[in-house]
Amino acid sequence: MPFYTRLFVKTSLAYAVLAAALLALTDLASLMRWSNFSPYQTALHLFLVGWVLQLIIGIAYWMFPKYTQARPRGYDGLMALAYGALNVGLILRLVVEPIPTFWVESWARTVFVVSSVAQWVGLLAFVVNMSLRIKVK
């Protein structure tokens, strides 16, 4: 497996564990009536973006047709950007989103904006690199 495949797949496995843990914490928060802790949406996105999407990115990077002989997997800089931006965005989200009292703070709103832009830039970098490798045979 190429480097970025290993990186994305191992990271995705870690997110699967984290998402499941956060889901369990969601139930615990309800049972214990922790009204200031609400991690359900964060858990969902750690599952769908952190686990499912990053697993797909890693495997697609490995399996898609080669771009050129010189650059068989496209531009690795784009994959580095995809990895960094998606994960910075997810981690920022994880810091702020589960605690609703943060949401009205101006610093937290800034974190939400940075997180959302980072995640979308990560998606764009992945799409651009993989679009180069879509080849009909």
Partner: peptide, 13 residues
Amino acid sequence: GGAWGAWMLATKG
């Protein structure tokens, strides 16, 4: 869909 989700996250709260 990702852009819409990003907009939602940016306007959280």
